[in-house]
């Protein structure tokens, strides 16, 4: 676990919602904001935000990625943490922005912003040490770990720790939790057959747990996995962890 210094507890945070949340999972984005507010924090959502730049960055178009990333830089003045409900976008900002801005006039600012980025569950556990009270009915769920959350942000145990705080939630882990679901941004449409085979294995793994829901922290994975669950008429629902936690704790 990549522990960041968390003292003193912050009172104000920025929220970077990400473009996928914006377009496809706004309720999950809102749930994340409300989870933070429930901890007594002031959450600031800069309306000028759009995308972290990852799609272009990973497609070989660095100048375009830089242009988009640069448009975000001035939205987060000061030192308050920047919380992102996505391991992948958080990883882009935290790990890749310093490289992307390397040698640019605003490199120092990009590095400063990057250093303040947290993935949502990581922030809830490490910075806020939240204690959740479950108000929901008994349910069995499984957890899908996104690759970038695990390997770029070092977020492995935090989301599962949050799920385990919920008394009526039974967490059954996947047999191949660490294996990629096959989304990979443009990979899914560049190599649809391979991507389909990968998500096929993932869906089989999910079905094998007997869970009613698969919870994840990344919307790319969720688009892929819920899409495959629906196409395969599997009775499992996919949900963003922010939304799941909010539902369980707000009654």
């Amino acid at each position: 676990m990549d522990h960041q210094p968390a003292t003193p507890k912050p009172t104000r945070v920025y929220y970077f919602g990400t473009c996928l949340v914006d377009l496809f999972f706004p309720d999950a984005g809102m749930a994340g904001i409300e989870l933070l507010q429930a901890q007594g924090l002031t959450v600031v959502f800069p309306q000028g935000q759009s995308c972290c730049g990852q799609p272009a960055y990973n497609s070989g178009y660095r100048a375009e990625a830089l242009k988009v990333a640069r448009a975000q830089l001035d939205l987060f003045p000061g030192d308050d943490p920047i919380v992102v409900p996505s391991g992948s976008c958080a990883g882009m900002m935290k790990k890749h922005w310093p490289d992307l801005f390397h040698g640019e006039p605003d490199e120092a600012k990009a590095v400063q912003v990057a250093s303040r980025v947290w993935e949502l569950t990581q922030f809830l556990v490490q910075a806020l040490e939240v204690r959740l009270t479950d108000k929901g009915e008994p349910v069995r769920v499984t957890w899908h770990a996104s690759c970038h959350a695990q390997r770029e942000m070092g977020v492995v145990d935090e989301p599962k720790a949050l799920l385990r705080q919920l008394a009526n939630v039974e967490l059954v882990e996947l047999a191949r939790e660490k294996e990629c679901c096959g989304f990979g941004g443009t990979f899914a449409v560049r190599h649809p057959e391979i991507s389909a085979a990968m998500v096929g294995d993932k869906v089989a793994d999910i079905a094998g747990t007997g869970a009613a829901r698969v919870v994840s922290g990344d919307c790319g994975c969720l688009l892929n996995i819920t899409g495959a669950l629906e196409a395969g008429r599997q009775p499992v629902q996919g949900q963003h962890i922010a939304q799941f936690l909010k539902e369980r704790t707000h009654g």
Partner: peptide, 20 residues
């Protein structure tokens, strides 16, 4: 059929945040 079509939400997070 391997995946259903992604469904766009009718209101973005930007909209929801403003409304709230």
């Amino acid at each position: 059929a391997v995946r259903s079509k992604p469904r766009f939400a009718t209101r973005t997070l930007h909209d929801l945040a403003r409304a709230k």
